[in-house]
Design a protein around this nucleic acid. Structure first.
Lengths: 265, 265
DNA sequence: CGCGATTTGTGCACGCCTTCACAAGCGCCT
DNA sequence: AGGCGCTTGTGAAGGCGTGCACAAATCGCG
């Protein structure tokens, strides 16, 4: 039941970071656990077993236990985990014990929807300011928040202790916006613009690209449409003859026959 | 080599039904490459080396080459990749040679923003129908699309050959909506509702949880705030009274409290 | 016509993540 | 008090993904 200490380093010499060095995969799942735990707490559960929680969040129970074990040892064998305690622990590690201030840049359609999104406020965040480059939008009020001009970023970021920026601008504007955010002191960025961003090493960026998600689904659709087709005739399976925009040229694999080696499955 | 069909020699002009069995990690990156390649094509580039493309998309060039090699062999040594050919290949594997019809359920703030989002149309998708359970919204028109009642789902899905559903409803409604989508024949779902969904095995679900993204960023913020803070202050750092909702109990951590971290190795 | 510069495609090793399986710990019941 | 069933925490194994480093392949030039 050793703690999160990565390797059994010597206590005397090893300066241990304040936070357990969680695997990224674990970090990404903790919020999911947290959500489920809040539900359980509201439903009046005092404790929960890893097995029960794992079915709720659709995660292998061993993986769940290992994830939680990274936080320390907060379960009771034979009983399970104390729901409230676990919530507190996860919120602590995720840094949610303080309500973090977020700046939202770009109040187009998506930006407005994000500004209104209740999920942020409900889960530890406060949208502290809205920005846009369009002077016509500046001064407008969106869900109780004044839209400021992007040039006011440095001042507002400082005043409101903003550490997280959300980019909901068109792609061409995104890089300039990040640069401004970064120089204003923001060190975490959530990017909705469909483009790659350049940031210094100390800045974290997460991207959400809506079209990419659909394209990934599209791949699986394509695959499903190919394989289980017992008829085994058509390739793209399109019922109607559409495909108007791009040239629907057929794939021509010009792989060289130099390797007759046909590795069978 | 020879991932999928060794079509090279025998030009039976036959279809290539068997798609290469791409690693999921590769599938997730292909859309990013595709985006960059479109830019390159517009900029007039005929060919691109893996090195150049890799810097554009911020991916290790070896990884990039390996990803592309899964598609077949479409590069020329000493030269690079043919941009147009590569675009066609990626669009083919992703199943983008046909424009896929998408149903969007839930036209609240987020749903409306998604309905307006140009990125979908620009990248191979067509929002074919909008649905909502609220009769007051049914009949309204949003960005040129009629909002239908969710009970019309089966009919519309069939008529429009919809295979992908997007859920932008509140969490409590999401599971019921998926069930309806699935029974209507939809086999891929993009879920924006903050909850876990149950679906049959043959249905793919991808989730986008905006608050989770912020929480992951929050974790890294927390970590950054702990480690490099040379001063004694560490844990929750921010001023201002907060944490009104939940008990701001400090971590009853058995792990050692914040030790000033010395520099790494 | 051959040589050097360039770039692809990939074998290999390493590290992270997942999963199984099980000993250790805890509470309850008899 | 002792045993029994339940659950946690984790060692070990296997799989997947990443990145290095290099042979093979191609082009351009002398």
């Amino acid at each position: 039941m050793s703690q999160h200490r990565p390797t059994g380093a010597s206590d005397s010499a090893g300066p241990v970071p304040a936070l357990p060095d969680l695997p990224e995969a674990t970090v990404a799942r903790l919020p999911v656990y947290l959500r489920a735990l809040h539900s359980l707490a509201e439903a009046g559960n005092d404790t929960i077993s890893s097995e029960a929680l794992s079915t709720a969040v659709r995660v292998n129970s061993a993986k769940l236990r290992k994830d939680l074990s990274h936080l320390g040892s907060y379960g009771t064998r034979g009983v399970g985990y104390d729901v409230v305690l676990l919530i507190e622990q996860i919120e602590y590690v995720l840094g949610l014990t303080q309500r973090r201030a977020v700046a939202l840049v770009g109040v187009g359609n998506l930006g407005q929807a994000l500004a209104d999104y209740a999920g942020f406020a409900n889960r530890g965040f406060r949208i502290a300011a809205l920005f846009d480059a369009d002077r016509r939008l500046v001064g407008r009020e969106i869900s109780g928040l004044l839209v400021r001009h992007i040039d006011d970023l440095p001042q507002t970021v400082a005043e409101e202790s903003i550490t997280i920026g959300v980019i909901a601008t068109p792609a061409p504007a995104a890089q300039a916006v990040v640069d401004q955010l970064v120089s204003a002191g923001v060190t975490s960025i959530l990017n909705f613009a469909p483009c790659v961003l350049s940031v210094p090493d100390n800045v974290d960026v997460r991207k959400v690209d809506l079209a990419i998600e659909l394209q990934i689904l599209s791949f699986h659709e394509h695959r499903k449409a190919s394989a289980p087709a017992a008829s085994g005739e058509e390739l793209t399976t399109t019922p109607g003859g559409l495909a108007a925009t791009t040239t629907p040229r057929l794939p021509t694999d010009r792989r060289r026959p130099t390797e007759p080696k046909a590795v069978g499955p």
